[in-house]
Structure formats: C-alpha cells, structure tokens
Write a protein that binds this DNA or RNA. Structure first.
Lengths: 348, 348
DNA sequence: CATCCATGTGAGAGCGCTTTCACGCCATCG
DNA sequence: CGATGGCGTGAAAGCGCTCTCACATGGATG
C-alpha cells in the first residue's frame, strides 16, 4: 500500500498513458470525467493515476482551455472599517467556501497604491482570472466598468458606482436601519437620535434613509438636531455623541450606523451619567464581536456577510448560463439582534 | 454571445514579433529584461508591445519555466481567534504588500474540512504555487512536513509543529506574556491568574510560559488554581474566569492570552462585583480594537502583525539564495500598551 | 590576411495538456 | 450479405511561451 506518492513532478499524462497501456487522449478523458470511455480503460487509467500519484499540470491545461481556474477577489483601498472588524475575513470565508465547491482558486488582490492598482488591472485584463469579485470600491472607481468592457465577468460586493452596469450583491442597509429604529420606537422612545456613517458611502446613506423611514412610519418628526455624522470609527462615535447630547440633552435613544460608533457613544453617555438602556437605549450596526464585549451588550443589526460572499460567487458563475449583458443584483436581508442595551424598560 | 474571449487575446508574442520585424526570441528577451538585445530591436519591440497592448500569457510562460508566479497562503484554523479579530486581514495586508513588490500573486487557501485540506495539499504538491505560507497551524498538522519533503518552499507563521524542520516567523509570545505579567507584578499584584489559549497552539503554550517566567522572576510561586485554559474566544474567557473565581476568589490580577478572553473575563468579574483595576487588574493580548472599546480600556500586548507578514515573504524568497536545508527563524518583539484596566492603584 | 572572439539575432524544439478527426469494431438493418 | 451507424480509441495538431543552439556580423588579434 504505497498510496499516492510522489509529487506529480515528472508524472505526466503521457506517463500515465504508458502505464495504463492507453493513449494520452483516453487518460485526459478519464481525468476530465468524459463519459465516453470504456469500463476497462477507465479502470486501468484510474489505477495508473493512483499508482503514479499523477496530478494534472494546470498551466498546461490552462494554456489550451483558456481558462485559469481561478477567481480574483479585489479589495479596493482598505478603508479603516474593512480592516478593523471581521467583515473582511468573513466575506473571504464565504467566497472561499463557494469557490472551493467549484474547484476554483481564490486569488487575492489588495492594491494599495495607484501603481499596484494599475498592475492589478493589467493582470485581470490579461484574463488571468476567470472572473472578478470587487469589494469596497471607492466612489468613482473605474475598475468595474473597465473590466466589463473587456468582457470579464464581474460581481461587485456592495452597491457599485453609478453608471457601472455591474451585477452586485448588497446587504439591505435601508431595511436594517429601519428595523433598528422601529425597534426603538416600539420601546416607546420618541427622541431617537442617529449617528450616521460617511455620506459618501452607500452604507452610510442607506442607513440614514432607513432611520428616516422608520421615524416617518412611527409618526415621529425627524429633527436635524438628532442627526450627527460619524465615520464608522469609535472616536467618531464619541465625538458625534457629544454633539448630540449638547443639542438635545433629553434624547432617549441612539441608533449608531456601526458598532464601533455605538461603543464610542456609550462611553460618552456613561460619562454624562446616562444609564443604558434606562435613560438612553442604544442600537448599533454590524453585530461585530464588540457588540457582545461591551457593557451592556449591544443590540445590533446583523448582516449575512458569509452569505454575501457565497452569493457573489453564485452570481459570478451563473453568468455562464445567463445572457451576459444583463446585470443582476441580490439584496440580502438583515437581522436585528436584541441585547441589553435596548431591552425592556419602556419609558412611555 | 460571441464572447469576446478575454482581451489581450489574439495578441501573442508572435504578433508582436511580426509587428516589430523581429523574431519571437527577441521579443521574449525584451519582455523579460534580457540585456543582450540591441538598441534598435529593443525600441521596435517596445513600441509594438505598446501599440498592440500585448500582455504575456502566464499559463504559457508557466508551462515552460515551471514556476507559477504565485505564492499560496494557507489559513488552517477557520474559526475563532483568526476570524474574530483583525489579525488575519493585517497579516494578509503585510503579505500582500511584500508579494506585490516581487510581482507575485497571492493565492488564498482556507481549507475548512478534511476533504478541502486534502485538496489544498494536492494543489500545493502539484507545484501550483512557488512557495507556501502557512498560518495558524494546530499542533500536529502534517502539512508543513509533507510540503517540505516534497521540496516546496515553506514558511510558517507562528512556531511550526515539533519535528517539522521549517523556517518560521513568530512573534515573541514568551516575551510578550512576560512583559504583561511583570507589569502586573510591578503594580504589586501577587495573586496573578492567567487564562491560557489552546494548549495545542504554540501561541497558547508560549504565553503560558511567559506568564510562568515572569512569576518566577518576581519570586511568586505558580499555582495550578490560578491557571485556567480558554480557547481565545470571549465565551471561553468568561467560562475560564468563572472557574478561576471559584478556585481563588481572592485573586488580584488576570492575564488573558487574548483580548477577547479578557473581555469575557471582565464581564464575569464585574458580575461578581469586582472593580477593575482596583480589585482585579486585567491585561489582554493582541491589542485588538476591542481593547479600546470595552470599559475600562484594556492594557494589552501589541504584535507587529503586518511586519510578520512581510518577514514571512522575505524568508520565503530568500530561500532561493540560501542552502535550502537550513531552516531559519525570525522572532519579532511585542509592545505592552498600558491602559486603565491595569493602571495605578497599587495594592500590595 | 586568416583567425579569433564578442555580440546580437533567429530557427526550432519542446513544456503538458485538450480536442478534433479518422478509424476500427461490432451490432443492426435493408 | 453489404450497408449503416454508434461507440471507444488513438494520432496528431496545436495553445503561447522560453531557451538552447547555431549563425551572422564586425572588429580586434596573430
């Protein structure tokens, strides 16, 4: 019982063919699961493959099939957020799992300068990946458009720049924010403030829209003094909270567009002597590990990040069976996870 | 429908050669920076390349050079620590930057089952990557050994399993833990507990060793009741803290081998009515974003993660110029970041 | 003036694989 | 009994590139 030994180095299709007493063509058919191979031949070949420890040379295959067997994931300029919470690893895990199921490799590109971005584009333009997954684009990134023009399959994670006619997968930020604020309203809170994300990111804009929707639905007037903008970071959240408290000391709830900002807000609220949730209820966004690490544990909007990765892959691969000019989009729902920061204690 | 297959497609070395009025060999030399090309020819070729937008076909090149131009990063452990803090993105960023400087691609493998692991090993064994970076191995992972035996360059992040004669880059976990515990001892704490990581991971083992070193150096006897094992996760930290409190209600400090576990421990300490740092000082490890999000902000050991990634690449590529049988190691120093969870308030 | 070398260039042989295409075989049919 | 056609198989033509040779210069050397 040697088992499959050897490194595949030196063991070629030809060697297998000789060992099995058949032609290269037949071995190739067996390896690729072509059904038109006789019982006997197939068995012989399989045995030879096992014995020799044959592993196909992907470069050679790629050369003739014109497919690389790999999908590129491009992480645009790494904004703080992307590297400060587990969004990125989770997304990669979702993507990785889905690709793995299709026997595709994941090539990761993280261009961190204009030069590197140009290099990445050349790489992709050359067709070195069978498809591209784009994450975290900055506003007017030309990459998706340029790749699509070249006929390379592209799926964007998050809403793509205006005008880029690309398929994408996004989380329903409006609905997520709405559910958070509706929850606060249901608790009887009336002076509900929000700390928004950057207004040049779709996630920031959409979450603010959801906040407004929910207030409108609850018959509560929106009020500029209850809206402060942040930048998704913790210091930003603290800063915004200070402004809110100064403007409306009587606020009774805060919806922060990220957990980090919620954490910053809570520190400020505490320092100002507010009890949470008794005086002020707080809800965050992302359901990151921080949500359960802080005191009190934070109610937050959970996003199906891994599923987002999987959907991106599905969309990309489905393209094969779709008229390719049609851009498709998938919007994933969120889930509100209720914890102590907004529990019970109706104020009425 | 017609599928404009790829892009630089159709533009081959041969096309460039014809356009420039030279042979394929000359074009190849120009592309690869071979100095033995005349001024004229070089200029002609460069112009033709520009005009036609030629991009080399990597598969074809790979087929003959027997190098893939890519480095694989294998992330063993899919769960817990690695995906719950930004360790992983930061490491990837360091690795990515270093590879990019060498014109190498990053192929990411995240096997999440035995089957996927086998697939990954086959992939690597087939020589589809020019080198392998292994991260987050568990104690008895056979992968490094198996790859080394096959002659594939390997560098491990973190200490490799015993017996695996592999080069590696590690953060000085012993020193990091020691500095944390020395700090606690200097505060006058005497009943210093620790919550360890998994004992089958070198980071877990080494941090425990550092804890013991520091106690010994401070002339404090170690005590089994003050050691509880965790799994790097927050619930694990809470659980361990409960056991510690049950065994030694009078402990006055805790060193947790991860920030997440420290966060879990703090919740339990609080629930048990302990003030931090007055009654119990707490120190974590990783200096993750959580450290500044929790109350009180957590003293923690900061690791140079991106540098670790860069060093791993350097070691891997250096191998070319080194006798390959010599395994090398690089140990990076840590830094203790002191925050309120262990400040002032000397007790002893 | 023959000989040498250095230097730039081209012809051509593959790298390992997939994929026509043609062929031989046998069962089936007119 | 020859024609028909399905089926498994092999021969061979590349995919685009690198790299070893051999060759053609033209100056320097004996």
């Amino acid at each position: 019982m040697d088992g499959p030994r050897g490194n595949g180095r030196g063991v070629t299709l030809d060697a297998v063919a000789r060992a099995a007493g058949v032609s290269r063509a037949t071995v190739s058919r067996v390896v690729n699961g072509n059904p038109k191979v006789g019982e006997d031949a197939r068995r012989q070949v399989e045995r030879a493959i096992d014995r020799l420890g044959y592993i196909p040379n992907l470069a050679a295959r790629s050369l003739v099939t014109r497919r690389s067997g790999s999908i590129a994931v491009v992480i645009g300029e790494p904004t703080g957020r992307l590297f400060d919470d587990p969004f990125f690893p989770r997304l990669l895990r979702g993507i990785g799992a889905a690709l793995s199921a299709h026997d595709l490799q994941l090539v990761l590109l993280m261009p961190q300068s204009a030069a590197e971005e140009a290099r990445a584009e050349r790489y992709l333009a050359a067709g070195h990946a069978d498809g591209v997954l784009l994450v975290s684009l900055h506003g007017n990134d030309p990459l998706p458009g340029s790749l699509i023009t070249r006929g390379i399959p592209v799926v964007v994670g998050g809403r793509p720049p205006e005008g880029a006619h690309a398929s994408y997968v996004d989380v329903d930020n409006v609905q997520g924010a709405r559910s958070a604020v509706e929850h606060l309203a249901r608790l009887g809170r009336r002076r509900i403030a929000t700390i928004t994300g950057p207004v040049d990111m779709s996630a920031g804009v959409d979450r603010l829209a959801g906040y407004r929707d929910a207030l409108a639905a609850a018959g509560i007037a929106t009020e500029p003094a209850l809206v402060a903008s942040g930048d998704f970071t913790q210091p930003g959240g603290s800063e915004a909270m200070r402004r809110l408290l100064a403007a409306r000391p009587d606020l009774d709830a805060v919806f922060a567009a990220s957990d980090l900002m919620a954490a910053g807000a809570i520190q400020v609220l505490r320092a100002a002597g507010r009890r949470i949730p008794d005086d002020v209820a707080v809800v965050g966004y992302d359901d990151s590990p921080i949500a359960t690490s802080i005191e009190p544990p934070l109610t937050s909007v959970r996003q199906p990040i891994e599923e987002m990765g999987r959907e991106m892959v599905r969309l990309l691969l489905d393209r094969a069976s779709q008229p390719e000019s049609i851009a498709r989009k998938v919007i994933l729902a969120t889930e509100l996870v209720i914890r102590r920061s907004s529990e019970g204690v109706a104020t009425g």
